[in-house]
Amino acid sequence: MKVISFLNPKGGSGKTTAVINVASCLARGASVAVVDTDPQMSLTNWSRTGDASASFDVFTAASEKDVYSVRKELGAYDYVVIDGAGSLSVITSAAVMVSDLVIIPVTPSSFDFSASGAVISVLEAQAFNRPVASRFLITRKLEQARMLAVLKDSIAQTGIALFRTSIAQRQSYVKSVFDGVSVFETSDGAAKGEIEILTKEIINTFE
Rank of each mutant, 00 (worst) to 15 (best):
A156W: 11
S116E: 05
A115P: 01
L101V: 07
A149Y: 11
S24I: 06
R140M: 12
D112W: 02
V19E: 00
R146L: 13
Y173F: 15
L148N: 05
Q144W: 11
S116T: 07
D112F: 04
S114I: 14
A190K: 13
I103L: 11
A18H: 01
Q169N: 15
F111H: 13
L151S: 00
D36F: 02
I202N: 00
A61S: 07
I4G: 01
Q144C: 10
V106Y: 01
L101N: 04
S182K: 01
M41K: 14
V174R: 14
R28N: 15
V90Y: 10
A18I: 02
E207Q: 14
V150H: 05
K2N: 13
V81D: 00
K65M: 13
L101H: 06
S87Q: 14
D57A: 13
S116W: 02
D188N: 10
E201I: 04
T49Y: 11
N8M: 07
F113T: 00
D57I: 08
T16L: 03
S182Q: 04
K65R: 15
S121V: 03
S166K: 07
D38V: 06
I197A: 11
A168K: 13
P9M: 09
R164M: 11
S53G: 08
K15T: 06
T139N: 05
G84S: 09
N204A: 12
R140C: 06
K15I: 06
T107D: 06
A191F: 01
V132E: 03
L26F: 06
N8W: 01
I195H: 00
N129Q: 13
V132M: 11
S109W: 07
T186H: 07
T158P: 03
S5V: 04
I120T: 05
I202K: 00
E143A: 13
I20T: 03
V106N: 02
K2P: 02
G12L: 05
A115N: 02
I82R: 02
E64D: 14
S89V: 09
T107H: 03
A95G: 09
G29T: 13
S31L: 10
P131R: 10
A85L: 08
K200Q: 12
I197H: 08
S166F: 10
V70R: 00
V174C: 12
E64Q: 14
S176Y: 03
E194L: 04
F56W: 02
I4C: 05
M97R: 15
D51I: 10
A95T: 05
T205C: 08
G193Y: 08
I202G: 00
T92H: 09
Y68I: 04
A145P: 03
M147R: 08
K175L: 12
R170Y: 06
K200P: 01
I120Y: 02
L123I: 04
V150S: 07
V34F: 04
L142F: 09
V81C: 09
E185H: 11
A18V: 05
